[in-house]
Every structure is written in C-alpha cells, then in structure tokens.
C-alpha cells in the first residue's frame, strides 16, 4: 500500500501497463523529458526509452491520426492531449476515423487507442484550459468514454483502458491530480464500465463523475448534519453507461440529481434524465434534476467558482428534489 496522488497513480498505472505489454507506446506534447505539463508521464521516457515514450510535434490531429496508423500496425498508443480545450484540432480524426474504423472494417481493424485528456476547471487557468467536452465524445458511436475520480480508480482504470480493444477517451479531473489516497495495487478492480456507489444513502442519489464526485461526497457529508442521507454514485464510465447500477440506486432513493461541470444543455445529465424517466416513471418521487455548469463558454477564472457546481448548489438541488 502506498499513498499516491492521482497523477502518480496514473503514472504507476501507465508504467505497469508498459511493463506488461511491449506494444504500449505513449505519445503527446511535452510528455518525455518534461513528463507532461501535469507530470503524469514523469520518468517514463527515461525508463522505457524514446521509442516508447515520445514527444510529438505540436499538432493534435497528427497525434491521433498517427496513433491510428500505429494501431493498424499493432501498437497500443496512449495519447496525451495537453488540455481539454486543445482536443478539437484532433476532433475530426477522433470522430471520423478513430471511432469508425472498427465498424468500417467490419471488425478487421481494432483501434486500441487511449486518448487521455485532463479536463474540468477550478485551477484558475486561462481560456481553453478548464473545459468539460465529454458529451461530444459520449455522443459518438464507436468511442468509449470514462473518467476517474480518485487515485485508486486512476491506477486501475488507465490499465483497463489500455487493455481494451476499443478506442477510449480517458478524462482525468485535473484539479484532483494532487489529491492523495492509499492505493492497494494488489486488489481486484471493478470492471471498467461499471458505476459504483461510493457513499450509500437513502433519501436521494447524487450521480457524478470525475471532479464532481468529491464535491458530491462533501455535499453528502454536509447533508448528514441536517439528517439527510444522500447516496453518491460515481458513474466512472459515461459510454457505455452502467444503467443497471443507476436504476438500482434510484429505485431505492426515488430521487436523482445529476452533477457535472459541463453545460446542462444536451449533456450527460440530459441522457440520464431521459433514460431514468423512461425506466422508473412510476417509482420516482421527484423529477431528475441537474446541477451543472451554465450554458456559456467557460468563464474567466476570477468567476469560475460561480460557474462550477459546488456544495451549496448541490444541496440547493437536494432541497428542491425533496420538496416535491
């Protein structure tokens, strides 16, 4: 057991997967000597060489496009996109090529490519460094989309993602990179596509992923003082989405609040609300509510705390839900 930050847990997970499979290569901007702007790949080039951990030219479409070619050649590329807002030059290659290659080839061409993207706000950054673009990818057939929320999941999920034969957009909540936890590397992890109840409760379910899991856990702790028992569900995988676990939770609590940093309009919460309404129409005590970023561009950092869902906004939504 070791105390690891989430960044270090990802680093250790990548190291393990590179040791296990010589076809795993890491590629991205400044991931070699620098170890990435968040140091997630720190030391890996030194230990595995420049053939397996390499700095790319500054061109995101090139990163994904060449990763596709490497995958056709039998490699398992793990691409780092430096920040969420920089993925869009690669969007065409991800959506039109990476996502569709397996179907286009009737399964003859596997695309075991992982695209790591630090996402979300709360770090006081300039424009394009705090976005939550997950819905664009979850909407795209052929991609799978996951987000880790803590060091234990980070360690195992990155390995599971690399082992998958499908292309995966792997979101890392950048403001949680430095949070620590005990990581038992010998434990058996949950399946990558499973959601998990991270705090049981009875009065309402808070559903979150990535950076908002901790926010929801804090809200549940605060609510406990008011005698309210909130269940917190870490979705972990946005596509595929583990509906059985979501339904099971909401059947018990009869109330659901979806929390994400991304704008609400046509976001993950919209999809979850529609599906839960269809499945549990007669069992709900309140409509599905959403606590999200606003339908604006991500604001300048001096007011980002107003944009981001926080403990108070979550509890406000809990009040609304319980008020039905």
């Amino acid at each position: 057991m070791a105390q690891l930050t989430m960044a270090k847990a990802l680093n250790e997970g990548l190291r393990k997967t590179m040791e296990d499979d010589p076809k795993v290569v890491l590629m991205g901007e400044d991931i070699g000597k620098l170890g990435g702007v968040f140091r997630v790949t720190d030391g890996l080039q030194k230990d595995f060489g420049e053939d397996r951990v390499f700095d790319t030219p500054l061109a995101e479409s090139g990163i994904i496009g060449t990763a596709i070619g490497l995958a056709i050649r039998g490699y398992r590329p793990v691409c780092e996109i430096q920040f969420d807002g920089f993925v869009f030059p690669a969007y065409d290659q991800i959506v039109s090529q990476l996502a569709k290659m397996h179907a286009r080839s009737k399964g003859l061409l596997k695309m075991p490519v992982v695209v790591r993207i630090p996402f979300g706000g709360g770090i006081g950054a300039v424009e394009h460094h705090s976005e939550s673009p997950e819905a664009y990818f979850a909407h795209t057939a052929g991609l799978k989309v996951v987000a880790c929320s803590n060091p234990v999941d980070a360690y195992f999920m990155i390995q599971q993602a690399v082992q998958s034969d499908d292309p995966i957009i792997f979101f890392e909540p950048k403001r949680r990179y430095w949070e620590k936890a005990e990581v038992d590397t010998s434990m058996t992890p949950d399946p990558l596509w499973s959601a998990r109840v991270v705090r049981p409760g009875t009065d309402a379910t808070l559903l979150a992923y990535g950076p908002m899991v901790k926010t929801c856990l804090d809200a549940a702790t605060a609510a406990e003082e008011d005698g309210r028992s909130l269940e917190v569900l870490d979705l972990r995988s946005m596509s595929p989405l583990d509906y059985p676990t979501v339904f099971e939770s909401v059947r018990r609590t009869k109330r659901l609040i979806v929390v994400h940093e991304a704008p609400s309009f046509v976001g993950l919460g919209t999809e979850v609300a529609a599906r839960v309404s269809e499945e549990l129409y007669y069992e709900m005590e309140a409509p599905v509510l959403r606590v999200t970023g606003f339908d604006t561009p991500y604001p300048p950092s001096r007011i980002e705390e107003e944009y981001l869902p926080d403990l108070d906004r979550v509890l406000h939504a809990v009040d609304r839900s319980l008020g039905y």
Binding site: D51, G65, T66, I68, G69, I72, R73, G74, Y75, S96
Partner: peptide, 20 residues
Amino acid sequence: TIVIGSQTLHATGYAMGITK
C-alpha cells in the same frame, strides 16, 4: 478514406510503427 487527407496521417503512423 473519404474525408480528404485523413489517411496521410494514418500512413505516417503506420510507417512510424515500421521503424519501431
């Protein structure tokens, strides 16, 4: 490949794999 030019990057990545 129908999107114009996309395959040139795939070919380049494949060629990088040949070198590796």
